[in-house]
């Protein structure tokens, strides 16, 4: 089947899509956007987190056909050219990146969290990110990155 959707603001067409393919497979293998990662294929790890019509989802759990006509934003769509998104910048500055496999999913999840809740309490951050597994960092520097991005966001607004 053919799937037409918008990804990171660009109209995209994927042909010869098998009905069982996920949005994640289409993004990674058909549209050349491997930023969203495949680590569990069952929605447990959050590595494939993307925006689907403004809501964060695990792309591995969305059938390609469900994304027909949708607006998808992936980690590749967050930076503005060479200018990193403040969440991406904070991940680098706080040392939240080790192997980096969980990073794209977490960056999108934090981006969504801070868009909804610009100054979240730590317990709220933990709850919001509980669906994103990281095996390298013990999450401490990821939490620091969220705080940093929130602080800088606050400075930007004032």
């Amino acid at each position: 089947m053919r799937v037409e959707l918008t990804v990171n603001g660009e109209p995209q067409v994927a042909d010869d899509v098998w009905e069982g393919e996920s949005l994640l497979y289409v993004l990674r293998e058909r549209l050349g956007l491997p930023g969203a990662k495949n680590a569990c294929e069952q929605g447990e790890c959050g590595s494939c987190t993307v925006y689907l019509d403004g809501t964060v989802v695990c792309a591995c759990l969305v059938a390609a056909g469900q994304a027909e006509g949708a607006e998808v934003v992936t980690v590749e769509g967050l930076a503005d050219g060479d200018a990193l998104d403040p969440v991406q910048r904070a991940f680098l500055d706080a040392g939240a990146v080790q192997c980096g496999f969980c990073t794209p999913g977490l960056v999108v999840a934090v981006h969504d969290l801070l868009a909804r809740t610009p100054d979240p309490a730590e317990a709220d951050v933990r709850e919001a990110l509980a669906g994103n597994l990281c095996r390298c960092t013990g999450y401490e520097h990821i939490l620091a990155a969220v705080r940093l991005a929130a602080e800088r966001g606050g400075e930007g607004r004032s």
């Binding site: 956007l33 491997p34 980690v75 991940f91 980096g100 960056v107």
Partner: peptide, 23 residues
């Protein structure tokens, strides 16, 4: 020094090629 990772930027933008991303 707490030097920044040279692979940090590609890892936060999704450009870093993991072995499962090769094509």
């Amino acid at each position: 020094d707490s030097t920044a990772r040279p692979d940090g930027t590609p890892k936060v933008t999704g450009a870093f090629a993991f072995s499962s991303d090769l094509y």
